[in-house]
Amino acid sequence: MPSVDGLNRRMTISQSAPQAATAAVHAVGLTKRYGRVTAVGGIDLTVQPGEVVAFLGPNGAGKTTTIDMLLGLAKPDAGSVQVYGQSPRSAIAHGLVSAVMQTGGLLEDITVRETVQLTASLFPNSRPADEVLKRAGILDIGDRNVKKCSGGQKQRLRFAMALLSDPGLLILDEPTTGMDVEGRRDFWNAIREDAKSGRTVIFATHYLEEADAYADRIILVRRGRIVADGTAAAIKNLASGRTIRASLPNADEAALRAIVGVNSVEVRQDSVLVRAGDSDAVARYLLTQTSAKDVEITSHNLEDAFLALTSDDAAADSADSADDTAELSEPIRSNA
């Protein structure tokens, strides 16, 4: 049911898509390097108001760095980002975007309510402290010292603080890290309840289930790049496909891509690797119209696909090919 809901949402959204100026997030070629390490290597991203987007990828994929740039906490080395048509800093100053960050960021020597009151005082118009405490499910511990709060309670406090400005866009960076299963479910229910009001939500996670259960759209990131972008259903389609591997020198990449149901093609020196929904069509083509040998067909589940798309093994696997992410460089668009 979330996917049906998400699908509807996306359809209405794509009709108004050309108005890029009012996009919640519009990023072009976002790049960030730390010394010789490229943390984010050219991310293009447009998020329309009302979307709930998951940034899914393993640790170190560049999720946090990307979020830092969306929030103006890090300056991109190249590219640009606009939040509601403004600079991130301006969007924050106008209360258009808020965020729940991974760790730290709380004063230990004041109470939960004081933390919220302090934050509220910095916004010209903010929701009442008790209202956001209630919505974050921590009204009962308002008088507790922050120092005495559990990890989950602190995270809910950060969520409450993020709700104060009633922002159009809420960004969450790995919000459930360190929570137990129940805490995680409660937290997501609160977020979900909140998103019903039409708030745009972008959250980073390395939990596949979280992305699947709570996002309309999933963006897979690996090594600072977007490797797939689509609805949860589209990502599942990708996952439900099969991989066809064959020994074939000088494969015709264009011809392979033209086959219906082909998701991605990776041409290596003497072999070719194709991911497709319809593996039979690819196999038929390879065996009848090329000199391909050793044709191998393997099926994958969602987990495999995720790992294949995002793990470092995948990178090492294709490191010898000319384009590091050839197989994945074409993002899969759900409404393409």
């Binding site: 929030l71 103006g72 906490l73 924050i92 100053a93 106008h94 209360g95 808020s98 965020a99 960050m101 760790t103 730290g104 960021g105 709380l106 004063l107 230990e108 934050t119 910095l122 916004f123 010209p124 603080m161 993020a162 400005s165």
Partner: peptide, 16 residues
Amino acid sequence: VERATGWSRQLRLTPL
């Protein structure tokens, strides 16, 4: 202290 604990970073998410 506020820099060490990340509070000053949190404040950067406000109009302050």
